[in-house]
Design a protein around this nucleic acid. Structure first.
Lengths: 211, 211
DNA sequence: GAATAGTTTAACTTTATAGTTAAATAGTGA
DNA sequence: TCACTATTTAACTATAAAGTTAAACTATTC
């Protein structure tokens, strides 16, 4: 019992964390199907036996990584969207939160998108409650703004879709987009960084009447 | 020699096309790593032996499917963008061309994005010439509009990135976005269809000063 | 009716990968 | 010192998938 508590033995105290980081790297880049347990072990500087000693199977290891990914991506974003800020403050908060997370983990959005495609049911439960709250609040703000003549009428779903598209797609499709834009890695990253400031401006032009 | 010419024998005259369609279905949904040759054979109603008789290996079959995918997606889009239309006519043309192709093949964008992520060099050659042409022309129109005071200043790369994001992301991330939006398949498709009209309006709000 | 291209069948080889096992080693705390 | 946990090693099994092969069958064409 008590597989591994604070009384740590031998060297390598946080091997589990090392494994998770390595698994993350490999799964993020190659996806579940493309990832190899051996590669994860190599990346962590350990052997397969120890990998299975900590995580019984590829599936369990993947689940751990995927949950981490979703929890890293979703809550900060929902926290902002479910706050009672003004619409454009929410947008700025969202973009900031999103870029802070994703700039550190540029493959995270593509990973989540691809794995959700393989198994769409994956995180619907995780976000079910937050979702309704967010959409209702958002729709209310949009309707109110439209009634005032300050905003053009828009469905909350389309608003969110636009915001997420502008933020996430350039990361998700970085491979393809670098080809299209003809930029090298550094130049493309620069392009992305500029969007952190630009997207909020664009979103306000999208919906505000007098902007 | 002359592996298979117009003098066709037996039934099944366009078996090769049937195989390509089946391979497309499977590769689009599951990606290279997730696809199984047996599944492709089953989908085509044939056996593995015949699959290898037509396409020597999984790689060759995949290459055929990927090339088809890129050629289906890219040229109509570049044709519009390289025309000498006004900026907003280009946008409308692009969105029309894109949605016409992609509504028939909703998994196409995700497939291309994911496979470009695995091997980014893949189609850079295919589009190299068209790309420069497109970006130059676009930047010229944007600069001209900005000089007139009709448009806000914007880099052509950001403009393209925005247009592609708004068009492609809702398809690429359909699995995740249905969770976020809480829509079922039909409702989500409806949401997508509405964007065909909305995106050109949004793009003009994005860049036009008096809009 | 013989030659040929397309197709099937089913068994086969090869390879890659997940996962297992057992034995040895080494530090830790009781 | 003993029991315990973490770790390594290396060989192992099991399985799934890619790819091969040979033999037979089937229309079609010449």
């Amino acid at each position: 019992m008590m597989r591994k508590a604070m009384n740590r033995v031998h060297q390598e105290p946080e091997t589990e964390r090392r494994i998770l980081c390595s698994a993350e790297k490999v799964f993020y880049r190659q996806g579940y199907d493309g990832a190899r347990m051996q590669e994860i072990a190599d990346e962590a500087g350990i052997n397969k036996a120890l990998l299975h000693y900590y995580f019984r199977s590829k599936d369990r290891l993947f689940d751990a990584v995927f949950s981490d990914a979703v929890l890293r991506l979703v809550p900060p974003v929902f926290a902002v969207m479910n706050s009672d800020s003004a619409l454009m403050d929410k947008v700025r908060g969202f973009v900031d939160a999103y870029f802070s997370t994703v700039s550190q983990n540029p493959f995270l959005p593509g990973f989540v998108v691809h794995e959700m495609h393989r198994n769409p049911s994956r995180f619907s439960e995780i976000i079910k409650e937050s979702r309704l709250l967010m959409l209702e609040g958002l729709q209310h703000q949009l309707d109110e703004g439209a009634a005032n003549g300050e905003l053009i009428p828009m469905q909350a779903e389309q608003f969110i879709l636009n915001l997420l598209s502008l933020c996430a797609f350039p990361f998700v499709a970085a491979g393809a987009m670098q080809s299209v834009s003809g930029k090298n890695d550094a130049e493309y990253q620069q392009l992305l960084e500029e969007r952190r400031e630009l997207i909020p401006q664009w979103m306000s032009r999208l919906v505000e009447c007098g902007a």
